[in-house]
Simulated assay, not measured.
Amino acid sequence: MARPTPELIYALRQTAQNLQHGAPYQWGHMGGCNCGNLAQQLTKLNKQQIHQYAMQRHGDWNEQAEDYCSTSEMPIDLLINEMLNAGLVLEDIKHLERLDDRQVLLRFPLEQRYLKHNVRQDVIAYMNAWADLLEEELLEKITLPSMEALEMA
């Protein structure tokens, strides 16, 4: 599971909001699918640029993650590297494309856990649930000083 970073949490929420407000969505397009929309937010590249980079190698996002090489100078690997630097791990890319991360799905009531990977509203719900999960994990790691410590300072 991803490292909970403010950048990633913001990107997930902003991507969900963009999709909610009509951002182009096309599951079969590398720049306009689930991962493509998040990649747009994290990298500031547009969907055409992302698609062009991805088409320089074969496969969908799952295969791109499998073939990822951290030392490659291929544009898609540089793009994936930016996504990883924001807190993602390669498995997150695979899960996002299929909306199937167990930890995220457990946040939904049982009857709502069967999300369709290519349905805009399901992608929005998944991204928001994932952002909530990561935010909770991040907040658990934050320790504020006690009042006594502040008064002694």
Rank of each mutant, 00 (worst) to 15 (best):
K116F: 08
A153W: 03
I124A: 11
R3I: 11
M127G: 03
T43K: 07
L110S: 14
I50M: 05
M127Y: 15
A11W: 01
A16N: 07
L144N: 04
T5A: 12
K47L: 14
G36C: 02
A153P: 00
Y10N: 11
W130L: 09
L110K: 14
A65V: 01
L150H: 05
W130S: 04
H29P: 01
C33D: 09
G87K: 08
L79F: 00
D101S: 11
K47W: 08
L106N: 14
L138T: 00
A54G: 09
C33V: 04
Q48N: 12
K141Q: 13
D101L: 13
L99T: 02
N118T: 04
D101A: 13
L133G: 08
E82Q: 15
K141C: 08
L144K: 09
R113P: 10
Q52H: 07
I80C: 05
L150P: 02
M147D: 13
P75H: 03
E151H: 11
G22C: 02
G22H: 01
Q20C: 08
L96V: 03
M1W: 03
D67C: 11
Q103L: 14
D92N: 15
H21Q: 14
E140W: 01
L45I: 02
A153K: 09
H21S: 05
L42N: 06
E111W: 11
L19F: 06
L84F: 06
C69K: 04
S146I: 05
L106A: 11
L84S: 09
E91N: 12
G32M: 12
Q49G: 00
L38M: 07
